[in-house]
Design a protein around this nucleic acid. Structure first.
Length: 205
DNA sequence: CATTTGATGTTCT
DNA sequence: GAACATCAAATGC
């Protein structure tokens, strides 16, 4: 597809990629059908020198594809229960990525609801990193696949103006807990909750 | 509304 | 043996 974000898009500072992925479109293909969703919340993990990044332990079996080339899909299991999906950034061997934290479904709501029967509202289908993976059936099977021509791709979408973007610290981490590397679309109802204690910053301070 | 807790298993120390 | 890029239900106010 001509709209796919090219590898060069990912081969840059992960915080910049995280910002610019807002508004891009996740496209997940399975059994001949493709589902679409707009990305509204992301987090950047900067690499081996970021204490919260999985790359701190080096290139192990788990982090193998995190260290892959830009535009690689890195999927890992968390808390033994859930999956989280990342877009790998920077060149092979660096180990940096952007976590997809929330998306706005653009079609196929009934299919998403079937996979997430316990979601109370539609807004709860995809407003968290593990929720969106469950809704779109993204699992360890996708770990290492290409975001350019694999089963999970990211397409060029609407640009989100700087004025609509906010930054906060990253959620659920203990190390480098104050680094403002979470990016979200301020006026989207599809983002996850921001902890009350978190500062919410404009994009350009 | 906000905060706490139990579920669950892989990874790393 | 502890930590963990989470979720949903239960509890507190």
């Amino acid at each position: 597809m001509a709209d796919v974000l090219p590898t060069a898009f990912y081969d840059r500072d992960p915080a910049r990629v995280a910002r610019e992925l807002l508004g891009a479109v996740l496209a997940v293909t399975a059994r001949g059908r493709t589902l679409h969703a707009r990305i509204v919340e992301t987090e950047a993990y900067l690499g081996p020198h970021d204490p919260a990044c999985h790359a701190v332990v080096g290139r192990t079996a788990r982090t193998w594809h995190l260290h892959g080339p830009p535009a690689t899909c890195y999927v890992y299991r968390i808390y033994g229960l859930h999956w989280c999906m990342n877009a790998v950034t920077l060149p092979e061997g660096i180990g940096s990525a952007v976590l997809l934290r929330a998306v706005e479904p653009l079609d196929a709501l009934p299919a998403l609801r079937r996979r997430r029967p316990r979601a109370r509202r539609d807004l709860d289908l995809t407003n968290g990193p593990a929720k969106l993976c469950e809704a779109y059936a993204i699992t360890g099977d996708h770990d290492g696949s290409s975001l350019v021509d694999g089963p999970v791709r990211i397409l060029h979408g609407d640009a989100i103006a700087d004025a609509r973007v906010r930054r906060t610290p990253r959620i659920g981490i203990t190390r480098a807990a104050d680094w403002p590397l979470r990016f979200l679309v301020a006026d989207s109802p599809w983002v996850s909750r921001t902890p009350t204690r978190f500062p919410v910053l404009p994009l350009d301070p």
